[in-house]
Computed example of a mutant assay.
Amino acid sequence: MRIAIVIGASSGIGQSTAIQLAKRGTAVILTYSGNQAGAQDTVAAIEKDGGAAVALRLDVGRSETFPAFREQVVAILRDTWQQDTFDYLVNNAGFGGMAMFEDTTEELFDKFMRVLLKGPYFLTQALLPLLTDGGAIVNVSSNSALPTGLVDAGYSAYATMKGGLNVLSRYMAKEFATRGIRVNAVSPGPTRTRLADSSGVVGFEAYPEVIPMLAAKTALGRIGEPDDVGMVIATLLGEESRWITGQNIEVSGGFDL
Rank of each mutant, 00 (worst) to 15 (best):
Q15F: 00
E240W: 06
G221E: 05
V210S: 10
A219Q: 11
Q40V: 01
Y158R: 11
D256W: 06
D228V: 00
S141D: 02
Q82C: 14
Q83M: 08
P212V: 08
S63A: 14
I211C: 02
V73Y: 09
V138P: 02
I29T: 00
W243G: 04
T245D: 15
A136W: 03
E47S: 05
V183E: 14
Q125L: 14
A39R: 03
V54D: 10
P147F: 13
G163V: 09
I76F: 13
G34R: 13
K162T: 03
A234S: 04
D87P: 02
Y207K: 07
Y121C: 14
V74L: 15
F86Y: 05
A45V: 01
D228R: 04
I46P: 10
T132K: 12
P226C: 01
W81P: 03
S11I: 03
G254F: 14
V28S: 15
F176L: 07
Q247N: 08
E71Q: 07
F101Y: 15
A9L: 07
A159Q: 09
Q20S: 07
N139V: 00
V167G: 12
I19Q: 13
D87W: 12
T160Y: 00
L89S: 15
S198Q: 08
K118A: 04
G61L: 00
R2S: 14
T218E: 05
Y207T: 08
A68F: 05
E47A: 13
A27Y: 11
A52E: 09
M1E: 02
L168C: 09
A177V: 00
L58F: 06
L116H: 05
S169Q: 08
A39Y: 01
I233H: 04
A206S: 05
N143H: 06
R182M: 05
T148V: 07
D49S: 14
L108I: 14
I211G: 04
G94V: 10
T31H: 02
G61P: 04
E102R: 10
P188F: 06
G34Q: 01
V229G: 03
L130I: 10
S156G: 07
V151A: 04
G94R: 06
G94H: 13
Y88H: 15
F122V: 04
K23D: 14
